[in-house]
């Protein structure tokens, strides 16, 4: 209750939440709202928006419904954003936790690996991975996960390092509890709030990254996505501004919503900080 009050006290967070709920609702009901496959050519090409109310946002280069594309595209963006963030967390949390808990050589070795991934230009690496394994929703999600885990690892490492020195952890060690159970039961639950905040922001950047890849033609060719729509519309930007405008707005709104939520979460979960801010 306290959490909700604090969250709701931030206007941005509420706006973000409302936006996200709408986007998720559209994504969830896309097959009902637009039962046709979004790839289906339903009308004449280049139908401008608001002319024919059946296709309110107009049609694209080959006569596909832009509104249907946006709705179905929301599913892809959210899915890729979520799954790739989970993938990044699944790599980053263990790496950071092990490095922070054991320190010494383990820390050294794991941090070298993290450094390695922070040294390679990440977007370039994502491009190479997707191009090599051929663009598909799996390779894209994997590539985003692979390039975005290092910050998670660093964050978790820092948290675990400081928690490791707390008395209750020392006590657990003295009790002879195994390292995995200490990490999972005692340490990580106490590090969860910064991880949640970071994750919500990571979903946002994953959506941006997915759209950038699709824009370059490295999207999944069987799934309609916002980045694909902009990439495909780039060459006709002068004849048909709406083809790149609406999906762009959709991306901005979604990323904005997630960022607003992330900030409010940060305020709500770290009250010490938030009081200082206001």
């Amino acid at each position: 209750m306290d959490f909700w009050r604090r969250f709701a006290s931030n206007r941005g967070g509420v706006i973000g939440l409302v936006l996200l709920v709408i986007i998720v609702a559209v994504a969830a009901t896309a097959p009902l709202l637009f039962p046709n496959n979004p790839w289906k050519m339903v009308s004449r090409p280049f139908l401008p928006p608001f002319e024919n109310m059946k296709f309110i946002l107009g049609t694209d280069t080959v006569g596909r419904d832009v509104a249907a594309g946006l709705a179905h595209g929301a599913r892809v963006s959210l899915l890729v954003g979520l799954v790739s963030t989970v993938a990044a967390l699944l790599i980053g949390i263990p790496m950071g936790a092990l490095a922070g808990y054991f320190g010494g050589r383990v820390d050294d070795a794991l941090m070298r690996i993290t450094e390695f991934f922070q040294t390679v230009p990440s977007f370039a690496l994502a491009i190479v991975i997707v191009a090599i394994f051929q663009p598909s929703v799996v390779s894209i999600t994997l590539a985003i996960g692979i390039v975005s885990w290092p910050p998670v690892a660093r964050l978790v490492r820092g948290e675990v390092m400081s928690l490791r020195k707390r008395e209750y952890v020392e006590a657990a060690i003295l009790q002879g509890l195994s390292a995995p159970s200490i990490i999972l039961r005692q340490v990580l639950p106490n590090a969860i709030s910064p991880i949640i905040v970071m994750a919500s922001l990571m979903v946002a950047s994953a959506i941006l990254l997915e759209s950038s890849l699709s824009f370059l033609g490295l999207g999944d060719p069987n799934l309609m996505s916002w980045g694909y729509m902009i990439g495909a519309a780039r060459t006709v930007i002068r004849q048909a501004w709406w083809l790149s405008f609406f999906p762009g707005v959709a991306i901005v709104l979604t990323v904005l919503a997630l960022n607003l939520i992330g900030e409010s979460l940060n305020d709500a979960l770290n009250p010490r900080l938030s009081r200082r801010r206001s």
């Binding site: 790839w39 289906k40 050519m41 080959v62 033609g217 060719p221």
Partner: peptide, 15 residues
Amino acid sequence: PYGETWMRLGEVIKQ
């Protein structure tokens, strides 16, 4: 993969 037109062609053929 020779540019946008050819990608659209693939999509139309599939449809």
